[in-house]
Nucleic acid binder design. Structure first.
Lengths: 167, 167
DNA sequence: CAAAATCGTTGACGACTTCAACCTTATACC
DNA sequence: GGTATAAGGTTGAAGTCGTCAACGATTTTG
């Protein structure tokens, strides 16, 4: 079952991209990154949440208490941006902000029970999106692709690097 | 030799992204797509041009005469967006717009000699960017990655599909 | 000849990111 | 202890960007 409503096939096939662009893995990566974003956004539409919200809930779901700063640093978000995202999560009752008694500048952010339920829903959605996006590949190819992407991410997105503790 | 000036390494390693995000090929694709865009933009900075300009020049370099509409359709650009891009290319003398005598609504766009030279420069730059971005992978891995990405692109970015004529 | 469609152009609009300023609170230093 | 400095969170401004509707000119349709 598809997460997104399929688009009607265009009556005429789209014009061909220049060969040199299609031959570039970097180019394909950029286009596919965009396509992945679009597919994801479409799938999230019904939930009223944003992929950003999912990432935040995931961080909070890992157990260790988080401040807004640590969330922002972990995900690479702007702190000003995070404020609005947390406002939205708090309005929906998925998250709780309270002052840290040890350092009253800080806000400690925690999942509420509703937040944990929402996180589970989003995990399922995320799996569905992944499955739909990778549909052309079998299990072996998916693993191979992930391995290769991870090798690139370790250079270009150090936050993705697998920590020693996690190995 | 690097195309972009290397960033100073942060004294502290960035915080760890949640495992489930890093485990998702879709997520890595989105982040890497963004990283690729940033790397590309940085490399293009000196040239005063934009990757969009390169794509346009590539289309024009393929020989068959192109109108603004056909360029936009080929690359998936908005027509209104293309106007400004072509203005910039024309200002730099890389491109010529002239009315199509057969259909005076259309503009036929052609490369100038300077445009062909610029295209060659950008081809070289593009190769350097590709090489730098894929640095963690050897030749075999690069081919494998490209194959996998292309399989995905055939579904998600039909313009990337290899045409029968091209096979 | 009139109506509709096409092509390129312009400008408005909303979404998004980045950034600087600000208030509160904690830490460093004299 | 008191003052300067830094850090956490918040707000709002600014700039970028893609999307889109409307327009004049021209061609096609009927």
């Amino acid at each position: 079952m598809s997460v997104t409503t399929p688009q009607p096939a265009p009556s005429f096939p789209a014009a061909q991209l220049p060969e040199e662009l299609v031959a570039s893995a970097t180019f394909l990566l950029k286009r596919l990154g965009f396509a992945a974003k679009e597919l994801t956004m479409a799938a999230y539409e019904k939930s009223g949440l944003h992929p950003y919200h999912y990432a935040i809930l995931l961080v909070l779901g890992e157990g260790s208490p988080e401040t807004q700063g640590s969330i922002a640093d972990t995900l690479g978000y702007d702190r000003g941006q995070l404020v609005g995202l947390l406002d939205e999560l708090e309005e929906r009752g998925l998250v709780e902000r309270r002052r840290d008694p040890n350092d009253r500048r800080r806000h400690v952010v925690r999942l509420t029970p509703d937040g944990k339920r929402a996180l589970q829903k989003l995990r399922t959605l995320s799996r569905q999106i992944e499955d739909e996006f990778l549909a052309p590949l079998n299990e072996t190819d998916r693993r191979k692709l992930h391995t290769l992407l991870l090798r690139l991410a370790e250079k270009h997105e150090p936050r993705c690097a697998i920590s020693v503790a996690r190995r």
